[in-house]
Write a protein that binds this DNA or RNA. Structure first.
Lengths: 152, 152
DNA sequence: TCACTATATTGACTAACTAAAATCAAGCTG
DNA sequence: CAGCTTGATTTTAGTTAGTCAATATAGTGA
């Protein structure tokens, strides 16, 4: 497995991580990566709000551009969930894992994939398509919301 | 299994289907259901364009309202795919099935679920959440696009 | 067929994201 | 380590998907 900044978690490492993928190590990109590693499944707006205190000139458009570039180079992964309008991002890209989302509060957690690589399951009849990966999102009720569900 | 208009596929049946769910059988709703049954996985804009010739006064907002109401009552199912910005809808609601999408041309096909009811798979560790269903979208390359992929 | 009320229409509005032009800075070159 | 080149960010605008509120219309029961 290649060297991943998550292992040492230092700003300097994110810079090298970016350069290793042929991207310039700008303060904005480092800030986005650093925040996203501490808070996975954040959307563009959340990232923007989080990094703005340290980089007052950053724009929301720049965040959109950065997450687009970073996911294009495979440094982060873009995830889209049925119950949220905006795309979310995470730094965990080495393995093939899935997500659970609470349909009441929207809370998202990682779910390890037992196979570990994509595609972890294959359909019976795929209409002649070559399957590359399976995007799986479990939808359920989290322990906090369970007691708040009105019984029918 | 309850009576489903898909079995006879006649406009009059859609009207009864709507009334059976406590909804008024308006021409707009029937048109949306009828089109959606003939062309599954259509989005709001496509539905709008398709039904407009027969109902010149219909508005895109009405289509949004209709698909919202119909999915709320379980007459249609809303699906959101990673590689398409807009939500899509289908009349196939009786069973639990999944989808394959070509990452190149966007083509979508149904994939039968071997289990047939939700959730067909359960995660190992669900963070204490009660899993209701698994949303599974396979991403791949369709036979038409396969030869067009540039080899590296 | 009339009235009641659900539903559709109209128009304004928001969120998420993309595009284009102009400015700025990372990091190579001498 | 100063200047240059080019990639990255900022700024401004625009697009797409969808929601909200008020009014007009049409389905259905009486």
């Amino acid at each position: 497995m290649p060297d991943h900044p998550a292992d040492h978690c230092h700003v300097h490492e994110w810079a090298n991580y970016l350069r290793a993928h042929g991207l310039r190590a700008t303060s904005q990109r480092v800030a986005v990566l650093d925040f996203l590693h501490r808070q996975p499944h954040a959307d563009a707006e959340s990232i923007f709000q989080a990094v703005r205190p340290g980089l007052p000139t950053i724009s929301l458009q720049a965040v959109h551009l950065i997450v687009h570039d970073l996911s294009g180079q495979g440094l982060i992964r873009r995830i889209s969930l049925p119950d949220s309008a905006s795309a979310r991002y995470e730094t965990r890209v080495e393995d093939n894992h899935h997500h659970v989302q609470c349909i009441r509060c929207g809370r998202i957690e990682d779910v390890d994939c037992v196979v570990g690589h994509a595609p972890c399951i294959e359909p019976d009849h795929a209409h002649g398509m070559r399957i590359i990966e399976a995007s799986i999102v479990f939808r359920g009720i989290c322990p906090d919301c369970e007691p708040k569900i009105p019984k029918e």
